[in-house]
Computed example of a mutant assay.
Amino acid sequence: MLLAGCGGEGPVKTQIEEARKVVFLSARGERPFETGQRNLLARLTANDARYQIQILDAGFSAETQRRQFQEAMAQAPYAIVLDALETAGLESDVRAAVAKGVQVIGLGESSVPLGCTSVLVADQKKLGQLAGELVVKALKAKAADAGQGEAAGRVVEIRGDDESLISQQRHEGFEAALKAAPGVILVHDAPGEWSLAGGRDRAADALRLQQSFDIVYAHNDLMALGAAATLKDRRENVMIIGTDGFRGREGGMTLVGDGEIDATVYQPLLVDFAWVLLKKMAETPGFQPKTRYEMPLRTILPKDVDDIRRNGLPKYPEF
């Protein structure tokens, strides 16, 4: 006897949608910003069974990164998030991937020439410029408090390294901003290799060679923290500015909030918006992203931390 309402075609099988494969090709090993990117993407994707994430790092090797890209393509992924080390050799791979329907989201200026589906950019020169403007503003305030007309001061810059485009652009923006105040002089400029130890060592060198200075600007928050550790009792008279500003033990927002450094220049972890963009493309038929998105930047001082906790960081660009 058949149950009422049942046809004779047998049970209907429920089709389970196959998880979309997303591969993140990170580039620069254990630098705090890159580690923060990988950790954030892992958290964002952890509870969404519709996506399967794989995270790889090239460890500064362009050859390794191209091999990883080709191996990722062999898995027929839905998307590749790419922090490109070089354009040479990768452009043909990226364009071929996009032609096959793979969504390739590039992170940073180095990805712009590759023909990605979309590229997310944080203007590194602008980051340096914001730091320089903060230096000039702080020294103008110091001069006003002392009854002096012109801003004047001695500044130390701790670069990430001597080779990367990121460091060069941050330095160019920083140096250009300082020119607004002729009395503000960059007296020491050396690479700290993006590390806590490098920040400590370069600050020690500056103390030995320059004896005194007013402000330290470091190309990441970890080097700024290292400089703070070296300066110790001089901290009251030296302002320390970092860069990146993300939350977490090695992030500038946390370090500023805890009083470990005095300020940071915030750039967002790009994978956050990349993840939003990928889901939008997957779940909204007909949606086409812009070829380029410019990420919001800002400075963060102690007075800003509580406001950011209440109201959030700058909004991402419109789709």
Rank of each mutant, 00 (worst) to 15 (best):
A141E: 15
K179R: 14
Q169H: 07
V155T: 01
G115F: 02
A180Q: 13
K125Q: 14
V136A: 07
S167D: 11
A141L: 05
V94A: 12
R154H: 11
V112H: 07
G128E: 05
A138K: 09
A88E: 15
V187M: 06
A152T: 15
L134S: 13
E163Y: 14
I80W: 07
Q124G: 12
S110L: 10
D93C: 14
S167H: 06
V102Q: 03
D123I: 02
G160C: 08
V184M: 04
K100I: 01
F174G: 03
E163R: 15
R170M: 02
L178I: 03
V156M: 04
G115L: 04
A152I: 03
G108D: 02
A190E: 14
E157Y: 10
V119L: 11
K179Q: 15
A146K: 09
D189S: 15
L165R: 12
S167P: 07
T87A: 15
H171Q: 15
A144I: 05
A190V: 13
E91S: 14
Q129F: 10
A99H: 07
V94N: 11
E91W: 11
A181C: 02
A143G: 02
L90H: 01
L90C: 03
S118I: 01
G183R: 08
F174M: 05
G173S: 03
G147P: 05
G132I: 05
A141C: 03
P191D: 08
I158H: 06
L139T: 03
P191C: 08
V136I: 05
S111H: 09
V102T: 06
K137V: 07
A131P: 04
V156Q: 01
G89T: 12
A177K: 06
G89F: 08
V81C: 04
A131W: 00
P113Y: 05
R154Y: 06
G173H: 10
L90D: 00
L120W: 05
A181K: 02
D145Y: 04
E172C: 06
T117L: 09
G101N: 11
V184P: 00
I80P: 00
T117W: 07
G160M: 04
A97S: 06
A144H: 09
